[in-house]
Design a protein around this nucleic acid. Structure first.
Lengths: 190, 190
DNA sequence: CACGAGGGAGAACGATCGTTCTCCACAGCG
DNA sequence: CGCTGTGGAGAACGATCGTTCTCCCTCGTG
């Protein structure tokens, strides 16, 4: 197994374990067992646990936002694209492994104690917000404050789905989003 | 110092430290120093750290929701009362000690590992949601799905204010809430 | 004063865990 | 075959921290 494969195996194991149980509940030894990579190699690639956590968040951010973008790109109508964000959230919430937002969870766990983790969480949320803003721009509607409002709905749905196990939060957010779009002049479905 | 005063001192210290730094970053010794209560007494009142954490969340929930209710009760118009929830969130976000939602943070930190903490977080969020629902009921507007939508906005504002340091999230959520209310037939200010 | 109960201060204990070190197997190469 | 260095397995180390224990002081009571 070369360095590249080891790195991938480590990040895969880290993602599954950290997301599922929380960072502090997972030891480096658990990562080792789950990945099959020796501790020596682990510490060569990630000299401290914190760096593994940050790398996990960074890679997940990339994947998460790309998956969202691909899902959205399946629609052609710009309004539908905006609403598809909420559909996608709904499919995420329905995933059996769903356990809330990885970045919110990590921020709660380590944000006060690890600037790097706090930064990753901030970056992810800002990235998501600007992705959403771009989708709103494409509709031609006035972006402010519409995009921010839709972002609040999305974040609210994520947190509610995670904490209250409320998988319908996506649909409900979609409904509210449609109403806000209509209030701003989007053509209403008939 | 009698038992009652010791309990209060402990919960005060726990609240300040746990909220400010996260639960796992605070040792029982820190609680002892900050409260002035001896370890022996601490363990008499809270036989394990987890119970102190749960008691902290429970007392904070009570205070938080009462403070919100009192703020809201200063207005008499039922629509204004609903919107006042978002004003109150805005004042909370502006507090210099604001560091996001205590329950979301604790859930991220311990939710996967401590059922008691997960339960407290769930209870708080459900309590908040039903408080909001009652305020919407008082307007006479159809409650579903309006109340849920407003709840998503509020949660989104809380999480965004915490993570992105965005103190204006309250105002923005208030704007969106006003629009959703208007779309459901509330009389518009003019 | 004797004495026992209760409480405070802080040492001690035991477990966990991030990180490093030791030891060994084995492959490449003369 | 011997030498060398890379890497794996897992023991060891050191720190932290939740929890308990020890020791001592104090105070109320006979």
């Amino acid at each position: 197994m070369d360095q590249r494969a080891a790195r991938t195996a480590l990040l895969d194991a880290a993602e599954e374990l950290f997301y599922g149980r929380g960072v502090q509940a997972v030891g480096m030894d658990d990562i080792r067992s789950a990945s099959g990579v020796s501790l020596k190699r682990l510490y060569q690639l990630f000299p401290a646990k914190e760096q593994l956590v940050e790398a996990y968040l960074e890679r997940r951010d990339e994947r998460w936002r790309i998956a969202l973008a691909e899902y959205v790109a399946e629609r052609s109508d710009p309004y539908e694209r905006v609403l598809a964000v909420f559909d996608w959230l709904g499919t995420w919430f329905a995933d059996p492994g769903f356990r809330g937002c990885a970045w919110i969870n990590c921020y709660g766990e380590l944000g006060a104690v690890s600037p790097g983790v706090a930064e990753q969480a901030r970056r992810h949320k800002e990235g998501f917000r600007s992705d959403l803003r771009r989708l709103v721009e494409a509709t031609g509607l006035p972006v402010d404050p519409l995009a921010e409002e839709l972002h609040l709905l999305a974040e609210g749905a994520i947190v509610t789905a995670g904490l209250l196990d409320d998988a319908d939060a996506g649909e409900r957010a979609r409904g509210a989003a449609a109403r806000l779009l209509a209030a701003r002049g989007a053509p209403v479905k008939g």
